[in-house]
C-alpha cells in the first residue's frame, strides 16, 4: 500500500560525502538548552525503528516543546520523515515496520497496546509533502475529519474557523462547494492544513510541506506556520535549511537515523557544536 521512502542506499553514499572517517553511531546526541520533560508535549525516548531488517532510527530521544515549531533537518534518507511519522503512528500502515522505545504524549506511551493509533492520529494532525486534498468540495475536505468523529457542534463554524486559521477563508469563502482540486497548489496545501486543524489536534506534523510549491506559496505557508503555533505545536520536516531557520524555534539535525544535535534554531545554525551539523548547515553535504 505505502512503500517505505527509505532505502538502504544513502547509507554508504552519505558516508563517502562525510569523508573517509566512518561515522560512529553510538555517540550521544549533542543537546543545547534541552527541553525538560515537563515542558515537552511529546517526549521521544530511546526510539528505534526498523523497516524489515533495515534499522531506520537509532536510539532517538527528543523532547518537543509545546506551542513551538520544531524543525527536523538532515540529508534525504536520514530518517527525519520516519521520525515525524512515528509521532502519529503513520508508520503502522507499513506492515514490515517494527519499533521499540517510547513516544509519550500527555503521559501516555503512544506505542502501548492500550492505545488506538486512530485516536493518536486524531490528536496529531499531519500535512504531507504534496498537497493531497480529497477530490471533494473545499467544505467537505475540511469537514472530513470532524465528520469521522461525528462532530456535534456547528460544523459550518468549525470549517470557517479552520479555513481562517489556514489563511484561506478569504480566497475560498465563495467557492466552498467547488472542488478542492480546483485550487492552486499553494491554496491546496493551505486547504490541507485547514483540514488537519479541523480535527482540533494539539500537534501538527508537516512533512516538507512546501517542497512541491512555488516560492510565493512557500512564503505564505511559512508565514502561516508562524501564526498557528499560538494554537498548535508544530513539527516540520524540511530539507531547506533557510526554511528551518525562518520558521522554527528549535531544530534537530539527523544523520543516518541518528539524532546528531538539537537545540534552539539560531544556535544550530550559527554555532553548531557537532562537526557533522556544521558540515550540513554549511551546505557541504546533503
Amino acid at each position: 500500500m505505502t512503500t517505505p521512502t527509505v532505502s538502504t542506499e544513502p547509507n554508504t553514499r552519505a558516508n563517502t560525502h562525510v569523508g573517509a572517517k566512518p561515522f560512529d553511531l553510538s555517540q550521544p546526541s549533542v543537546r543545547t538548552a534541552p527541553v525538560s520533560d515537563e515542558h515537552a508535549v511529546v517526549s521521544i525516548k530511546d526510539f528505534n525503528l526498523w523497516y524489515g531488517n533495515f534499522q531506520a532510527l537509532h536510539h532517538v530521544s527528543l523532547n518537543i516543546p509545546k506551542n513551538q515549531v520544531t524543525a527536523l533537518i538532515g540529508a534525504s534518507g536520514c530518517g527525519k520523515s520516519t521520525l515525524l511519522r512515528a509521532i502519529n503512528r503513520m508508520n503502522d500502515l507499513i506492515p514490515i515496520v517494527k519499533t521499540d522505545g517510547t513516544i509519550t504524549y500527555e503521559g501516555v506511551d503512544l506505542y502501548d497496546r492500550a492505545v488506538d493509533p486512530v485516536e493518536v492520529r486524531r490528536r496529531v494532525g499531519m500535512v504531507f509533502q504534496k498537497p493531497n486534498p480529497f477530490p471533494k468540495s473545499v467544505f467537505d475536505n475540511v469537514a472530513f475529519g470532524p465528520r469521522l468523529n461525528a462532530y456535534k457542534g456547528d460544523l459550518n463554524a468549525l470549517v470557517e474557523k479552520s479555513l481562517k486559521r489556514a489563511a484561506l477563508w478569504e480566497e475560498v469563502k465563495d467557492k466552498l462547494k467547488g472542488s478542492g482540486l480546483g485550487l492552486s497548489g499553494g491554496q491546496q496545501q493551505r486547504l490541507c492544513i485547514a483540514r488537519a486543524m479541523a480535527t482540533e489536534p494539539d500537534i501538527i506534523l508537516m512533512d516538507e510541506p512546501t517542497s512541491a510549491l512555488d516560492p510565493m506559496s512557500t512564503d505564505r505557508i511559512e508565514g502561516l506556520i508562524h501564526e498557528i503555533k499560538e494554537h498548535y505545536t508544530v513539527v516540520i520536516v524540511t530539507h531547506n535549511m533557510q526554511q528551518a531557520g525562518r520558521v522554527s524555534d528549535r531544530t534537530a539535525f539527523m544523520h543516518l537515523g541518528v539524532l546528531i544535535e538539537e537545540g534552539p534554531t539560531d544556535q544550530i545554525f550559527t554555532n553548531p557544536k557537532h562537526e557533522m551539523t556544521e558540515r550540513y548547515v554549511e551546505g557541504r553535504f546533503g
Binding site: 515496520v97 519499533t99 506511551d109 506505542y111 502501548d112 497496546r113 492505545v115
Partner: peptide
C-alpha cells in the same frame, strides 16, 4: 510492535 506497560 506494541508493548504493554502496566497502568498505561
Amino acid at each position: 510492535m506494541e508493548r504493554k506497560t502496566p497502568g498505561m
